[in-house]
């Protein structure tokens, strides 16, 4: 009876459905990641300002997002906002909003950290050579910041992709949900399908995240100099 499980995977258009589900996962992650990177860079720059007001506000935002489990945030936006303001936000949009809020906060903190880790002397010694402010950023500060930032940012991206599996719980049909549906549908005809389907889902996550984290490792090695 063991062969029945793998049969379910290839039955009908199950594989296509899983890939469709994967596309939902990737689409939501991609959108959230792109917005988070842009907003996060801006946030990170704001966080390095000496202004006490921006300092306090960004701090509160970051701590709030960090303390809240992502699932609670998802519920808060999807169910809470709908009830309180009587607006309907689709599951997918809620997911993008939550993951952008989270990604922006984390990315902002990474950017802040990378920026302040550049020693003040780097500014002084490049200024002493006669470089202008813009040149100092272009040739000295930004290249060094990016080298510190990119491996960390990539790590954040894979974390975000993995965490999108939570959005099943607000009714978004992504790769994990499709898997569950397939398993449900063949519960009686192929009881061992769960292993095969979840195994496939695992593999799909792997092929999305592995190249990304591999890239991070590569860049880190190359920039060790």
């Amino acid at each position: 009876m063991q062969d029945l499980g793998i049969r379910v995977l290839l039955e009908g258009n199950n594989m296509i459905r899983l890939l469709d589900g994967l596309w939902v996962t990737v689409r939501i992650s991609l959108l959230a990641v792109v917005i988070s990177i842009v907003m996060g860079i801006l946030l990170g720059m704001v966080m390095t300002l000496k202004n006490p007001v921006t300092k306090a506000l960004t701090r509160i935002y970051l701590e709030f997002i960090r303390i809240m489990p992502q699932l609670v945030l998802l519920f808060l936006i999807y169910f809470g906002a709908a009830k309180a303001f009587n607006i309907h936000i689709s599951g997918e949009l809620s997911a993008v909003i939550v993951f952008t809020l989270w990604g922006t906060a984390e990315m902002g903190d990474l950017v802040r950290g990378a920026l302040i880790s550049i020693p003040k002397h780097q500014y002084d010694s490049s200024a002493a050579l006669g470089l202008t402010g813009i040149q100092i950023y272009r040739y000295i500060i930004i290249p060094q910041t990016l080298r510190r930032l990119i491996p960390l940012a990539i790590n954040l991206v894979t974390r975000m992709i993995k965490t999108t599996s939570l959005i099943v719980l607000i009714g978004v049909v992504e790769v994990l949900k499709v898997g569950q549906q397939i398993i449900e549908a063949s519960r009686y005809t192929a009881p061992s399908a769960a292993l095969w389907i979840y195994g496939t889902v695992f593999f799909l996550y792997f092929i999305v995240c592995f190249p990304i984290s591999k890239l991070s490792g590569k860049l880190e090695k190359r920039w060790q100099n």
Binding site: P119, H121, D124, S125, A128, P143, Q144, W223, N225
Partner: peptide
């Protein structure tokens, strides 16, 4: 402009590491 005429070397060398 002026700094091109004035060379300065610091205690902590501060070469550009990249």
């Amino acid at each position: 402009q002026i700094r091109q005429k004035i060379g300065m070397v610091f205690q902590s060398y501060d070469l550009f590491p990249h």
